[in-house]
Amino acid sequence: MGNKTMTNEEVIEQVKQGNWCAKFQPKQKANVNNDGNLIPKLTPQNAEQGHLVQMLLAIMQKIPVEVNFGGEWTTSTILFPSMGYEYRIKPTPLPISREAWSFINKTWQYAAMDECGAICLYERKPTKSGRGWDTDFNVSDCPLNINTDGINWETSLTERPEGV
């Protein structure tokens, strides 16, 4: 019979002839470990596990991840879930040079991009809110033409460098 897919009628005919042996092919290969045992599909059980799964996916997809180790954020290529470390996607600040900051009024201490790609300047540090950034202080559109290719709006918050 080979690997030919049979119609219902052909199967019934085989059964009538006493051929009760049927070979079933799974539509996709089962998820098995090296011992041949099935691996159950696991899902995160809480927000912490969900966050760690996202960090693992980021590492596997070559998205830079950082770990807070002793109060300092440093690049990480491995997770230590039982150690209680804090992990995050590495911030991708806006590419605003020190020289460009020197042309911006010192009132503006932060810049950030919203989900739509619009860049604003902020007097005080804004917080993420929905699809953008929110603050109770002054906000201004950014007059600079900034290349935002590859910038994640959620990690785009950029602080004015010291001394500029």
Rank of each mutant, 00 (worst) to 15 (best):
residue 4 K to N: 08
residue 5 T to I: 06
residue 13 E to C: 13
residue 14 Q to M: 14
residue 15 V to R: 11
residue 20 W to V: 11
residue 21 C to W: 04
residue 22 A to I: 08
residue 23 K to F: 03
residue 25 Q to D: 06
residue 25 Q to P: 02
residue 27 K to H: 04
residue 28 Q to Y: 08
residue 35 D to L: 06
residue 39 I to N: 09
residue 39 I to T: 10
residue 41 K to E: 08
residue 48 E to P: 02
residue 48 E to Y: 14
residue 56 L to S: 02
residue 59 I to D: 05
residue 60 M to F: 10
residue 61 Q to R: 13
residue 62 K to D: 15
residue 66 E to D: 05
residue 67 V to H: 04
residue 70 G to V: 09
residue 70 G to Q: 09
residue 73 W to G: 10
residue 74 T to N: 00
residue 75 T to V: 14
residue 77 T to E: 10
residue 81 P to H: 06
residue 84 G to N: 09
residue 85 Y to Q: 09
residue 88 R to V: 07
residue 89 I to S: 06
residue 91 P to L: 10
residue 92 T to A: 06
residue 93 P to K: 07
residue 94 L to A: 01
residue 97 S to H: 07
residue 98 R to P: 01
residue 100 A to G: 02
residue 105 N to H: 09
residue 105 N to V: 09
residue 105 N to F: 05
residue 107 T to E: 12
residue 108 W to I: 02
residue 115 E to N: 11
residue 117 G to S: 08
residue 118 A to Q: 15
residue 123 E to V: 00
residue 123 E to A: 08
residue 125 K to I: 12
residue 128 K to Q: 14
residue 133 W to T: 00
residue 134 D to N: 08
residue 135 T to L: 12
residue 138 N to Q: 10
residue 138 N to D: 14
residue 139 V to I: 15
residue 144 L to F: 04
residue 144 L to P: 01
residue 145 N to I: 10
residue 146 I to L: 08
residue 146 I to V: 14
residue 150 G to Q: 07
residue 153 W to Y: 03
residue 153 W to Q: 01
residue 162 E to H: 13
residue 163 G to C: 00
residue 164 V to K: 06
